[in-house]
Design a protein around this nucleic acid. Structure first.
Lengths: 148, 148
DNA sequence: TATCAACAGTTAACATATCAACTAAATTCT
DNA sequence: AGAATTTAGTTGATATGTTAACTGTTGATA
Protein backbone atom coordinates (compact mmCIF):
# COMPACT_ATOMS: atom_id res chain seq x y z
CA UNK A 1 0.00 0.00 0.00
CA UNK A 2 1.41 3.27 -1.05
CA UNK A 3 -1.68 5.24 -0.22
CA UNK A 4 -1.88 6.49 -3.76
CA UNK A 5 -3.81 3.70 -5.42
CA UNK A 6 -6.86 5.82 -5.96
CA UNK A 7 -5.18 8.93 -7.19
CA UNK A 8 -6.14 9.84 -10.71
CA UNK A 9 -3.50 9.99 -13.41
CA UNK A 10 -4.16 13.71 -13.62
CA UNK A 11 -4.59 16.42 -11.04
CA UNK A 12 -8.05 16.55 -9.54
CA UNK A 13 -9.84 19.74 -8.72
CA UNK A 14 -8.22 19.93 -5.34
CA UNK A 15 -4.78 20.42 -6.82
CA UNK A 16 -5.61 22.43 -9.89
CA UNK A 17 -4.05 25.82 -9.36
CA UNK A 18 -5.95 27.55 -12.19
CA UNK A 19 -9.23 26.27 -10.80
CA UNK A 20 -8.33 27.33 -7.27
CA UNK A 21 -7.45 30.81 -8.52
CA UNK A 22 -10.62 31.03 -10.56
CA UNK A 23 -12.76 29.94 -7.65
CA UNK A 24 -11.13 32.36 -5.25
CA UNK A 25 -11.53 35.22 -7.66
CA UNK A 26 -15.17 34.39 -8.23
CA UNK A 27 -15.78 34.29 -4.50
CA UNK A 28 -14.12 37.65 -3.96
CA UNK A 29 -15.87 39.23 -6.93
CA UNK A 30 -19.24 38.27 -5.49
CA UNK A 31 -18.57 41.04 -3.02
CA UNK A 32 -17.82 43.67 -5.61
CA UNK A 33 -20.18 42.82 -8.44
CA UNK A 34 -23.21 44.50 -6.85
CA UNK A 35 -21.22 47.71 -6.44
CA UNK A 36 -20.07 47.79 -10.03
CA UNK A 37 -23.52 46.92 -11.19
CA UNK A 38 -25.09 49.74 -9.23
CA UNK A 39 -22.88 52.11 -11.19
CA UNK A 40 -23.59 50.38 -14.49
CA UNK A 41 -19.96 49.45 -14.97
CA UNK A 42 -18.66 46.06 -16.01
CA UNK A 43 -15.62 44.41 -14.51
CA UNK A 44 -13.66 45.03 -17.68
CA UNK A 45 -14.62 48.67 -17.84
CA UNK A 46 -13.59 49.14 -14.25
CA UNK A 47 -10.23 47.50 -14.86
CA UNK A 48 -9.59 50.06 -17.60
CA UNK A 49 -10.74 53.00 -15.52
CA UNK A 50 -8.64 52.00 -12.58
CA UNK A 51 -5.59 51.43 -14.73
CA UNK A 52 -5.98 54.97 -16.01
CA UNK A 53 -6.09 56.40 -12.51
CA UNK A 54 -2.62 55.07 -11.86
CA UNK A 55 -1.07 57.43 -14.41
CA UNK A 56 -1.84 60.68 -16.18
CA UNK A 57 -1.80 59.14 -19.60
CA UNK A 58 -1.30 55.62 -20.84
CA UNK A 59 -0.92 54.08 -24.25
CA UNK A 60 -3.64 51.66 -25.21
CA UNK A 61 -1.13 48.87 -25.50
CA UNK A 62 -0.04 49.44 -21.90
CA UNK A 63 -3.61 49.49 -20.68
CA UNK A 64 -4.12 46.25 -22.52
CA UNK A 65 -1.20 44.66 -20.72
CA UNK A 66 -2.05 45.90 -17.27
CA UNK A 67 -5.74 45.02 -17.50
CA UNK A 68 -5.18 41.70 -19.24
CA UNK A 69 -7.71 42.71 -21.85
CA UNK A 70 -6.88 41.74 -25.41
CA UNK A 71 -6.36 44.60 -27.87
CA UNK A 72 -9.65 43.92 -29.67
CA UNK A 73 -11.62 43.85 -26.43
CA UNK A 74 -9.92 46.98 -25.23
CA UNK A 75 -10.53 48.73 -28.51
CA UNK A 76 -14.24 48.05 -28.31
CA UNK A 77 -14.64 48.74 -24.63
CA UNK A 78 -12.87 52.06 -24.94
CA UNK A 79 -15.52 53.34 -27.33
CA UNK A 80 -18.25 53.00 -24.76
CA UNK A 81 -16.19 54.62 -22.04
CA UNK A 82 -15.40 57.52 -24.35
CA UNK A 83 -19.04 57.97 -25.28
CA UNK A 84 -19.96 58.05 -21.62
CA UNK A 85 -17.35 60.74 -21.10
CA UNK A 86 -15.39 58.66 -18.62
CA UNK A 87 -12.14 58.68 -20.57
CA UNK A 88 -10.61 60.58 -23.45
CA UNK A 89 -7.95 59.90 -26.03
CA UNK A 90 -5.44 62.01 -27.87
CA UNK A 91 -2.97 61.19 -30.57
CA UNK A 92 0.60 60.70 -29.58
CA UNK A 93 2.86 63.19 -31.33
CA UNK A 94 5.92 61.02 -31.58
CA UNK A 95 4.10 57.95 -32.80
CA UNK A 96 1.21 58.37 -35.18
CA UNK A 97 0.12 54.78 -34.69
CA UNK A 98 -0.56 55.15 -31.01
CA UNK A 99 -2.77 57.28 -28.82
CA UNK A 100 -2.81 58.16 -25.19
CA UNK A 101 -5.73 57.46 -22.93
CA UNK A 102 -6.60 59.44 -19.87
CA UNK A 103 -9.41 59.37 -17.39
CA UNK A 104 -11.83 62.30 -17.21
CA UNK A 105 -12.94 64.06 -14.05
CA UNK A 106 -16.22 62.26 -14.31
CA UNK A 107 -14.38 58.97 -14.69
CA UNK A 108 -12.09 59.69 -11.78
CA UNK A 109 -15.07 60.59 -9.63
CA UNK A 110 -16.76 57.33 -10.54
CA UNK A 111 -13.68 55.29 -9.72
CA UNK A 112 -13.31 57.14 -6.43
CA UNK A 113 -16.93 56.46 -5.56
CA UNK A 114 -16.69 52.78 -6.43
CA UNK A 115 -13.35 52.51 -4.66
CA UNK A 116 -14.85 54.03 -1.56
CA UNK A 117 -17.70 51.56 -1.48
CA UNK A 118 -15.34 48.69 -2.25
CA UNK A 119 -13.09 49.62 0.62
CA UNK A 120 -15.74 48.49 3.09
CA UNK A 121 -15.78 45.09 1.46
CA UNK A 122 -12.00 44.89 1.45
CA UNK A 123 -11.88 45.67 5.11
CA UNK A 124 -14.43 42.99 5.84
CA UNK A 125 -12.50 40.48 3.76
CA UNK A 126 -9.30 41.39 5.54
CA UNK A 127 -10.96 41.03 8.90
CA UNK A 128 -12.09 37.54 7.99
CA UNK A 129 -8.78 36.35 6.58
CA UNK A 130 -6.43 38.41 8.66
CA UNK A 131 -4.01 41.08 7.49
CA UNK A 132 -1.02 38.80 7.79
CA UNK A 133 -2.52 36.08 5.63
CA UNK A 134 -3.75 38.61 3.09
CA UNK A 135 -0.21 39.84 2.84
CA UNK A 136 1.07 36.32 2.43
CA UNK A 137 -1.47 35.68 -0.30
CA UNK A 138 -0.51 38.80 -2.22
CA UNK A 139 3.15 37.89 -1.95
CA UNK A 140 2.56 34.37 -3.20
CA UNK A 141 0.48 35.60 -6.11
CA UNK A 142 3.18 38.06 -7.07
CA UNK A 143 5.70 35.28 -6.85
CA UNK A 144 3.65 33.17 -9.23
CA UNK A 145 3.65 36.02 -11.72
CA UNK A 146 7.35 36.57 -11.48
CA UNK A 147 8.62 33.01 -11.39
CA UNK A 148 6.27 31.16 -13.70
CA UNK B 1 3.82 63.11 7.53
CA UNK B 2 1.84 59.93 7.76
CA UNK B 3 3.51 58.39 4.75
CA UNK B 4 0.13 57.98 3.11
CA UNK B 5 -0.31 61.35 1.43
CA UNK B 6 0.01 59.94 -2.04
CA UNK B 7 -2.19 56.93 -1.62
CA UNK B 8 -5.23 56.96 -3.83
CA UNK B 9 -8.69 56.99 -2.29
CA UNK B 10 -9.17 53.54 -3.77
CA UNK B 11 -7.04 50.45 -3.88
CA UNK B 12 -4.47 50.52 -6.63
CA UNK B 13 -3.57 47.53 -8.71
CA UNK B 14 -1.04 46.39 -6.17
CA UNK B 15 -3.66 45.73 -3.58
CA UNK B 16 -6.52 44.55 -5.72
CA UNK B 17 -7.08 40.93 -4.82
CA UNK B 18 -9.30 40.12 -7.83
CA UNK B 19 -6.69 41.55 -10.16
CA UNK B 20 -3.89 39.66 -8.44
CA UNK B 21 -5.86 36.43 -8.75
CA UNK B 22 -6.69 37.10 -12.37
CA UNK B 23 -3.09 37.87 -13.20
CA UNK B 24 -1.77 34.79 -11.44
CA UNK B 25 -4.29 32.58 -13.18
CA UNK B 26 -3.43 34.04 -16.54
CA UNK B 27 0.26 33.44 -15.92
CA UNK B 28 -0.33 29.85 -14.92
CA UNK B 29 -2.71 29.21 -17.79
CA UNK B 30 -0.07 30.33 -20.26
CA UNK B 31 1.60 27.04 -19.46
CA UNK B 32 -1.46 24.93 -20.13
CA UNK B 33 -3.13 26.70 -23.01
CA UNK B 34 -0.86 25.20 -25.67
CA UNK B 35 -1.63 21.70 -24.38
CA UNK B 36 -5.38 22.21 -24.44
CA UNK B 37 -5.14 23.81 -27.81
CA UNK B 38 -3.18 20.92 -29.26
CA UNK B 39 -6.12 18.70 -28.34
CA UNK B 40 -8.67 21.14 -29.66
CA UNK B 41 -10.23 21.60 -26.25
CA UNK B 42 -11.16 24.90 -24.66
CA UNK B 43 -10.58 25.73 -21.03
CA UNK B 44 -14.27 25.49 -20.33
CA UNK B 45 -14.63 22.16 -22.05
CA UNK B 46 -11.74 20.80 -20.05
CA UNK B 47 -13.23 22.01 -16.79
CA UNK B 48 -16.35 20.01 -17.59
CA UNK B 49 -14.45 16.90 -18.62
CA UNK B 50 -12.30 16.95 -15.55
CA UNK B 51 -15.28 17.51 -13.28
CA UNK B 52 -16.85 14.40 -14.76
CA UNK B 53 -13.78 12.30 -14.08
CA UNK B 54 -14.19 12.96 -10.39
CA UNK B 55 -17.43 10.96 -10.23
CA UNK B 56 -19.28 8.31 -12.21
CA UNK B 57 -22.24 10.50 -12.91
CA UNK B 58 -23.04 14.09 -12.10
CA UNK B 59 -26.10 16.22 -12.48
CA UNK B 60 -25.69 19.16 -14.80
CA UNK B 61 -26.42 21.55 -11.97
CA UNK B 62 -23.56 20.09 -9.97
CA UNK B 63 -21.20 20.31 -12.91
CA UNK B 64 -22.26 23.91 -13.28
CA UNK B 65 -21.38 24.66 -9.70
CA UNK B 66 -18.06 22.86 -9.65
CA UNK B 67 -16.87 24.30 -12.96
CA UNK B 68 -18.19 27.80 -12.30
CA UNK B 69 -19.90 27.73 -15.67
CA UNK B 70 -23.33 29.28 -15.83
CA UNK B 71 -26.20 26.93 -16.73
CA UNK B 72 -26.62 28.43 -20.21
CA UNK B 73 -22.92 28.14 -20.98
CA UNK B 74 -22.85 24.62 -19.68
CA UNK B 75 -25.94 23.68 -21.65
CA UNK B 76 -24.38 24.80 -24.89
CA UNK B 77 -20.91 23.47 -24.21
CA UNK B 78 -22.31 20.07 -23.35
CA UNK B 79 -23.78 19.73 -26.81
CA UNK B 80 -20.40 19.97 -28.45
CA UNK B 81 -18.85 17.49 -26.05
CA UNK B 82 -21.68 15.06 -26.66
CA UNK B 83 -21.34 15.38 -30.41
CA UNK B 84 -17.65 14.68 -30.13
CA UNK B 85 -18.46 11.58 -28.12
CA UNK B 86 -16.54 12.77 -25.09
CA UNK B 87 -19.47 12.67 -22.69
CA UNK B 88 -22.96 11.20 -22.58
CA UNK B 89 -26.17 12.00 -20.77
CA UNK B 90 -29.05 9.97 -19.47
CA UNK B 91 -32.28 10.97 -17.84
CA UNK B 92 -32.53 10.67 -14.11
CA UNK B 93 -35.30 8.28 -13.10
CA UNK B 94 -36.30 9.98 -9.88
CA UNK B 95 -36.34 13.47 -11.30
CA UNK B 96 -37.61 13.98 -14.81
CA UNK B 97 -36.26 17.51 -14.88
CA UNK B 98 -32.66 16.50 -14.49
CA UNK B 99 -30.17 14.34 -16.30
CA UNK B 100 -26.92 12.75 -15.40
CA UNK B 101 -23.70 13.40 -17.24
CA UNK B 102 -20.85 10.98 -17.49
CA UNK B 103 -17.57 10.94 -19.31
CA UNK B 104 -17.00 8.43 -22.10
CA UNK B 105 -13.95 6.24 -22.53
CA UNK B 106 -12.78 8.53 -25.27
CA UNK B 107 -13.29 11.53 -22.99
CA UNK B 108 -11.49 9.87 -20.11
CA UNK B 109 -8.60 9.00 -22.38
CA UNK B 110 -8.38 12.59 -23.55
CA UNK B 111 -8.39 13.93 -20.00
CA UNK B 112 -5.75 11.42 -19.03
CA UNK B 113 -3.58 12.44 -21.97
CA UNK B 114 -3.93 16.14 -21.23
CA UNK B 115 -3.42 15.52 -17.53
CA UNK B 116 -0.25 13.65 -18.27
CA UNK B 117 1.19 16.44 -20.37
CA UNK B 118 0.07 19.02 -17.83
CA UNK B 119 1.81 17.20 -15.04
CA UNK B 120 5.18 18.15 -16.47
CA UNK B 121 4.18 21.79 -16.32
CA UNK B 122 2.89 21.42 -12.79
CA UNK B 123 6.13 19.88 -11.68
CA UNK B 124 8.08 22.70 -13.23
CA UNK B 125 5.86 25.26 -11.58
CA UNK B 126 6.25 23.53 -8.26
CA UNK B 127 10.00 23.44 -8.65
CA UNK B 128 10.06 27.17 -9.25
CA UNK B 129 7.78 28.11 -6.38
CA UNK B 130 8.58 25.34 -3.98
CA UNK B 131 6.26 22.66 -2.66
CA UNK B 132 5.83 24.37 0.67
CA UNK B 133 4.75 27.66 -0.83
CA UNK B 134 2.46 25.93 -3.30
CA UNK B 135 0.81 24.26 -0.35
CA UNK B 136 0.51 27.58 1.43
CA UNK B 137 -1.05 29.13 -1.63
CA UNK B 138 -3.61 26.37 -2.01
CA UNK B 139 -4.49 26.65 1.65
CA UNK B 140 -4.94 30.40 1.44
CA UNK B 141 -7.09 30.14 -1.65
CA UNK B 142 -9.28 27.55 0.04
CA UNK B 143 -9.54 29.82 3.03
CA UNK B 144 -10.72 32.66 0.82
CA UNK B 145 -13.46 30.42 -0.55
CA UNK B 146 -14.59 29.29 2.82
CA UNK B 147 -14.44 32.51 4.77
CA UNK B 148 -15.47 35.14 2.26
C1' DT C 1 -56.01 17.65 -3.88
C1' DA C 2 -55.44 22.21 -5.75
C1' DT C 3 -52.37 25.97 -5.75
C1' DC C 4 -48.09 28.11 -5.51
C1' DA C 5 -43.27 28.30 -4.98
C1' DA C 6 -38.91 26.34 -6.11
C1' DC C 7 -35.91 23.88 -9.20
C1' DA C 8 -33.50 21.89 -13.69
C1' DG C 9 -32.54 22.98 -17.90
C1' DT C 10 -33.13 25.57 -22.26
C1' DT C 11 -33.68 29.45 -25.33
C1' DA C 12 -33.30 34.22 -26.99
C1' DA C 13 -31.11 38.66 -26.99
C1' DC C 14 -27.36 40.98 -26.20
C1' DA C 15 -22.52 41.93 -24.51
C1' DT C 16 -17.92 40.41 -24.43
C1' DA C 17 -13.93 37.30 -25.82
C1' DT C 18 -10.98 35.32 -29.32
C1' DC C 19 -8.54 34.57 -33.52
C1' DA C 20 -7.18 35.89 -37.85
C1' DA C 21 -6.69 39.27 -41.16
C1' DC C 22 -6.09 43.90 -42.08
C1' DT C 23 -4.28 49.24 -42.29
C1' DA C 24 -0.98 52.30 -41.25
C1' DA C 25 3.09 53.89 -39.09
C1' DA C 26 7.62 53.11 -37.21
C1' DT C 27 12.05 50.17 -37.11
C1' DT C 28 15.45 47.42 -38.78
C1' DC C 29 18.29 45.65 -42.24
C1' DT C 30 20.86 45.68 -46.44
C1' DA D 1 17.22 55.23 -49.56
C1' DG D 2 14.44 51.09 -50.22
C1' DA D 3 12.59 46.62 -48.71
C1' DA D 4 11.28 43.75 -45.11
C1' DT D 5 9.87 43.38 -40.33
C1' DT D 6 7.74 44.83 -36.32
C1' DT D 7 4.35 47.43 -33.83
C1' DA D 8 -0.34 49.85 -32.67
C1' DG D 9 -4.73 49.59 -33.25
C1' DT D 10 -8.98 48.12 -35.72
C1' DT D 11 -12.33 45.07 -37.95
C1' DG D 12 -14.88 40.76 -39.08
C1' DA D 13 -16.29 36.13 -38.05
C1' DT D 14 -17.28 33.18 -34.70
C1' DA D 15 -17.56 31.41 -29.96
C1' DT D 16 -18.60 32.12 -25.33
C1' DG D 17 -20.65 34.71 -21.42
C1' DT D 18 -24.74 36.94 -19.26
C1' DT D 19 -29.34 38.17 -18.14
C1' DA D 20 -34.04 37.42 -18.39
C1' DA D 21 -37.76 34.84 -19.75
C1' DC D 22 -39.55 30.48 -20.63
C1' DT D 23 -41.06 25.04 -20.24
C1' DG D 24 -41.67 21.35 -17.62
C1' DT D 25 -41.04 19.08 -13.37
C1' DT D 26 -41.06 18.54 -8.27
C1' DG D 27 -42.03 19.98 -3.62
C1' DA D 28 -44.49 22.54 -0.14
C1' DT D 29 -48.68 24.45 1.62
C1' DA D 30 -53.26 25.23 2.57
Amino acid sequence: MTGKENEPAFRGYGRSLPMALLRARDTVMNRFRPILRAHDITEQQFRILRALTSANELRAVDVSKSTLLSPPSLSRTIKGLEQRGLISRRMEQDDQRAFLLSISKKGAALVAKIGQQSEAEYLDIESRIGAKKMDQLHKLLTEVDEKI
